[in-house]
Amino acid sequence: MNHFPQAWGRPRDDVYGAYDASYLHDQNGPKAHTQSPIVTGTSVVAMKFKDGVVIATDNLASYGALARFTNVKRLRQFNTRAVLGFGGDVSDMQYLDRLLSSLSIRENYSAYASSADSADATEASAELNAKNLHTYLSKVMYKRRSDFNPLWNAILVAGLDGDGKPFLASADLLGSTFSAPSLATGFGAHLAQPMMRRVVPNEAAVANTTREMAEKAVRDAMKVLFYRDARSMDRYSIAIVSKEGGVEMMEDEQLEGQSWAFADRIRGYGTQVN
């Protein structure tokens, strides 16, 4: 044993080369923050209909190209009128989950909580709605990006606003926010968004869109994403938020009606080499 404690228990330099100390937090270097996501979730897709919002994600958490965790729920119900969908880094999603849990507890013990004995509508309307939640989350995301310590996520917030109308908005790692009749993050912005925009091109079209139409469009979008997004999976979660039904969360859906007939004709790689 020499008098360099840092070398104790480590491979010898003369045999294995110099030790890579870069992972030891360098006392002189800058404080390290997230530079890239590690375990990631892919697209979140959501669209409004006349009484509410449909939102879906698959249940996969990838480690690079590896389909690492196949039963990760990336939809999170906040209360009876807000559901969140997370794309991007899964550990940051779990951090936000804890943050929202503490917010939820704080809210439910505060003056905003509806008293147990009264169940009338005005009482319930004091708790955080989807719009409040989105504002809060966007502030968290913007603060973290401004600290150069981003939460590596793209988030969709789906639910009802203060007037009980459908609400759908996005927040991402830069703190950017926007709202539209249909939204999709990641790959879904390319593949799912055009499909959903055919159903709800604008706010006026939302009023003519039924729950069934919206749910079908979202499920179809999930199928197309599974076909073409290499980081996706055929088990997914879908939630429907509406004024009447509250939140209906289905967390273990199987993609149905797939058509792989075309695969027979594909030549050149895989098992059909020529």
């Binding site: 003056a111 905003y112 004091a126 955080l128 719009k131 409040n132 504002t135 809060y136 502030k139 203060g162």
Partner: peptide
């Protein structure tokens, strides 16, 4: 500012 909500 934080919640876009009028304080109760």
């Amino acid at each position: 500012l934080t919640y876009d909500r009028a304080i109760s």
